[in-house]
Design a protein around this nucleic acid. Structure first.
Length: 106
DNA sequence: TATGTGACATCAA
DNA sequence: CTTGATGCCACAT
């Protein structure tokens, strides 16, 4: 049963609890791809077609909202995160380690 | 089959 | 600190 790589990514992202965030690399690792962090971002881009994928909870390794430009406004992603209790300053998540959520490795 | 792409990660200067 | 280059790999065409 080979599901699309994207599908795997979506499964992980959907499991992210509210008020938590994770990194592309971590997701890739959880899936087993390991070095396919970029593909995760690619999947997020495609996730725009879906509404079940909280892409705003996924950031890069530094906790920076690199993909905010892909959302409608320039601050929508930040707003969503702040709405969940995550502090974001200058596209950077405050205390990233604190809010970091490690995906379950399947 | 080949080429281009990218919301990353990591290192060098 | 910032910038650039490189590796990486699945997807779209």
């Amino acid at each position: 049963m080979k599901e699309d790589f994207f599908q795997r990514v979506y499964e992980i992202v959907k499991q992210i609890p509210e008020g938590r965030v994770t990194s592309y690399g971590a997701i890739a690792k959880a899936i087993g791809a390991g070095r396919s962090a970029r593909i995760v971002g690619y999947a997020m881009n495609a996730s725009h077609y879906l509404e079940d994928v909280p892409a705003h909870r996924v950031v890069n390794r530094n906790g920076v909202l690199t993909g905010k430009h892909h959302f409608e406004g320039t601050n929508l992603m930040q707003q969503l995160l702040e709405n969940e209790g995550i502090e974001v300053v200058n596209n950077q998540i405050v205390d990233f380690k604190k809010h970091y959520w490690e995906p379950e490795i399947k």
